[in-house]
Nucleic acid binder design. Structure first.
Lengths: 311, 311
DNA sequence: GACGGCCCTGCTCATATGAGCAGATGGATA
DNA sequence: TATCCATCTGCTCATATGAGCAGGGCCGTC
């Protein structure tokens, strides 16, 4: 019996049968030290495969790589399920867990909106904070017919944190720059934007450039506007603003008409948490992370690997 | 963070990050004993899944169940691969390993023939014994056109064991009883059968009742003979003899014309090793094992589970 | 509000394990 | 054949771990 086969036997006796290395030595006619060494070999050669099977499992090694190689303050990575079934939920759960455990507990939290953030809000544990102010950081989905809009999302997070939400009563993108300036200078809106600027942490996701974008669905943009953006290099949007692979604004004129915190605010933030999942969003995730728009990344392993590959 | 989630974190830090329970306690703000207890819980609840990934892995727990619940002297169970791809090979390898490690090394080994045993023979390690006599225990496949017949199989096992093969120069089933008696009383044949009776161990497999059986292929039986056997309750054959679910001979007249060791010889043997794999053979495996025709079973996990289910 | 039982916690102590070391083994080379 | 080098082996010792136990808090019950 060669050493590899012996290692398999040792591993079986140790892990399946809960024998001590000493007993194993006795059974297989080898010394207990040899048993220990074979066991180490078995682990090294991948004969022993240890997996943490749980919807809330994480990938600490990948998280560390992200922190070290991309200079992130923190990262949370969950395994990507087969065919991405349920990644959104898993990543949202991880984001909720992260936020709930984040210290110091933010007194003012800036949030954007979207499908992903709605998922996060739903998963925030009740009582995750004691008196948090949740500020909406970009113009909202009031036009959207679906429930679960920016307003309910922010309110949910706030209520569960025993606090209140400060909503931004404005469209995401205005048709004319003058309208945008007018709204912005409205006292209530200005007050909201001011609070948004002083948030202790920002929580946002990102969208990809395609005709199903929430901006199109809500009527802020037309399908051909999006096409044009894509043609000009846009790969996605964060807080309503379309950026290219370098994290730069694609269409400054459009951006001027977009209401909410600026990319500069995010870049300067002490804590900016990007929550993003799925293969479709690898490119936009890369753009956001490499251009320093976030300090914390919460994502699935496939996305994380995509980011790490080219660095 | 509830205990289950905490257990997941502990498991990750322990198994993925190789931290000590003490370090984990420090990281998660719990005592090292709590970390240890959570780890135990995680293992118990199946959050930690440890697998031995190797072509020669075994299922010791199932083996133990077979020994204890079916009264076998020994059992070897290998995992059934997805869609049974390669089970035959895996089980054959396990049989070869078992035989090579069997103590005391048999001086005389009785073998039957067939696809499975050919696979076993090919996998016997060179020098597995020092001077073994391998006796063919049932009539052979001289008519068979394919290579790898009873003769080469027995010779291979013998050569690798630094010994020689004693072949049974006879068809498996004779057309007429008188012919069988005549052959049986031939001095050389009688001598072989005598050696077969005194084997220290028998190694054989089993076939299922269908028109592709080696007996039909070799011309010993016609397709409609097999159909008739099935109609009368036959579920398969071992050492050329067709048995029903209770391990009894189905057609005594046919059996009389079948040349080789009897079922009684197998039942009385100190060591009779059945090598069998695949879902198609679950029934015949059950018949052989429950009727005491073997003392050692070498099989795949699915087959083993099928046997254990109804006991 | 007092009591009793249950579970959980943090401990002690025996055991299991891994790191590191010195001698043994074996194969290649001069 | 003698010698060297590399690997392997069995050891000592420090550390990590698990079993079992006593005390404390929490719950329900009276």
């Amino acid at each position: 019996m060669d050493d590899e086969l012996l290692a398999v036997r040792v591993a079986e006796l140790y892990y399946d049968e809960n024998k001590t290395q000493d007993e194993i030595g006795g059974l297989l006619g080898i010394s207990r030290w040899k048993a220990g060494r074979l066991l180490a070999q078995a682990r090294e050669h991948g004969i022993v495969r240890i997996e943490i099977v749980h919807p809330r499992a994480r990938r600490l090694a990948t998280e560390r790589a992200l922190r070290e190689r991309l200079g992130l303050a923190d990262a949370v990575v969950v395994p990507t399920p087969e065919n991405e079934i349920g990644v959104q939920g898993r990543v949202a759960q991880a984001a909720a867990d992260f936020l709930a455990g984040f210290r110091p507990v933010p007194r003012v939290l800036g949030v954007s909106w979207g499908r992903t953030l709605t998922d996060v809000a739903e998963r925030m544990p009740d009582g995750w904070a004691t008196g948090v102010t949740v500020v909406q950081i970009n113009g909202g989905v009031s036009l959207n017919r679906r429930p679960g809009t920016a307003a309910t999302l922010a309110s949910t997070i706030a209520q569960r944190g025993r606090g209140h939400a400060v909503l931004l009563p404005s469209p995401a993108i205005l048709e004319r720059l003058s309208t945008k300036k007018a709204i912005e200078s409205d006292r209530t809106v200005a007050a909201v934007l001011e609070r948004a600027e002083e948030a202790n942490a920002y929580l946002y996701s990102a969208g990809v450039v395609d005709e199903n974008s929430a901006h199109v669905e809500s009527g802020y943009l037309r399908a051909d506007d999006v096409e044009e953006l894509a043609r000009r290099g846009a790969i996605g949007d964060i807080v309503g603003r379309y950026i290219d692979a370098n994290g730069n604004i694609v269409d400054p004129a459009l951006d001027e008409r977009t209401l909410g915190v600026s990319l500069e605010t995010l870049r300067a933030a002490a804590t900016a948490i990007l929550v993003i999942a799925g293969a479709a969003k690898h490119d936009i995730a890369r753009a956001v992370v490499t251009s320093g728009l976030c300090t914390v990344l919460i994502t699935d392993e496939a996305t994380a690997r995509a980011l790490l590959e080219d660095s």
